[in-house]
């Protein structure tokens, strides 16, 4: 184990532009999916926090359960959807980064919506009496609450980022792990592991973990600064 780790560290020193390509694609795919997931997930979560309708409880339970949706299931569903023989086959998106973004977005939306629903609903409990007296409508409440909770909601976004960056099941199936085109960090790790090159796997794993750590450090710093600034 320790020898493997040493080999991994030595490899890190000798990485070339191909690794940068893989890292770049990982970031591009996951950050795109995160953008889509945030744009859909936050309003969905906030709306679910303030809306009252029959079946709302069931929908919340379903959303919470979808946080645990296996990425490989999403992969198969998106595969069947985007396959040439599937309903959206004519767009020819299978085995492309776009397909990977679609799959990761589907993974990330329920997660962000579920976490933000909880955060916004907790805030809403405090604000509801005053909002109702002022006459704030549902949609205005959604906008105000999302703005008010913006710093807490970074947690929801970070959870989404972690899920997108770390999943391998969906991108492997819909991306195809094509060298130089759809190979990302996680599928590269899976490939190197199956080639028995454990040192390279661990080296890639270290890069991925540092990347996620770095993004979290950045987000945390922004949050600390912001809560000092805005209370």
């Amino acid at each position: 184990m320790s020898q493997t780790l040493l080999d991994a560290l030595a490899l890190l020193g000798s990485f070339d532009h191909r690794l940068l390509e893989i890292v770049g694609l990982s970031l591009r795919v996951s950050l795109s999916a995160l953008t889509i997931g945030t744009l859909l997930g936050l309003p969905l979560g906030a709306w679910l926090a303030v809306a009252r309708f029959p079946g709302r409880g069931g929908l919340i339970v379903l959303l919470n359960a979808l946080m645990g949706l296996p990425s490989v299931v999403v992969g198969v569903l998106v595969y069947l959807l985007l396959s040439r023989s599937g309903p959206l086959g004519s767009y020819g998106l299978l085995f492309s980064p776009a397909a990977m973004i679609v799959a990761q977005s589907l993974l990330v939306v329920p997660l962000i919506a579920a976490v933000s629903r909880q955060i916004v609903e907790d805030a809403w409990k405090d604000y509801a009496p005053e909002f109702s007296l002022i006459g704030i409508g549902r949609m205005q409440a959604v906008v105000l609450l999302l703005t008010d909770c913006r710093f807490s909601l970074t947690v929801a976004t970070l959870a989404g980022l972690g899920r997108a960056m770390s999943e391998v099941g969906a991108v492997m199936i819909v991306g195809g792990n094509i060298d130089g085109y759809t190979r990302v960090m996680t599928t590269a790790i899976a490939l190197e592991t199956s080639k028995g090159d454990l040192a390279l796997s661990i080296a890639l794993g270290l890069v991925l973990m540092s990347l996620i750590l770095g993004l979290n450090v950045a987000a945390y710093s922004v949050r600390c600064w912001a809560s000092r600034r805005y209370g």
Binding site: G135, G137, R150, F151
Partner: peptide, 19 residues
């Protein structure tokens, strides 16, 4: 009193939006 994590100005202004 419930104060939004926003500016003093917005904390008054938003209450006039429904009017």
């Amino acid at each position: 009193p419930m104060l939004l994590r926003m500016s003093v100005f917005t904390n008054v202004e938003f209450a006039l939006r429904p009017q």
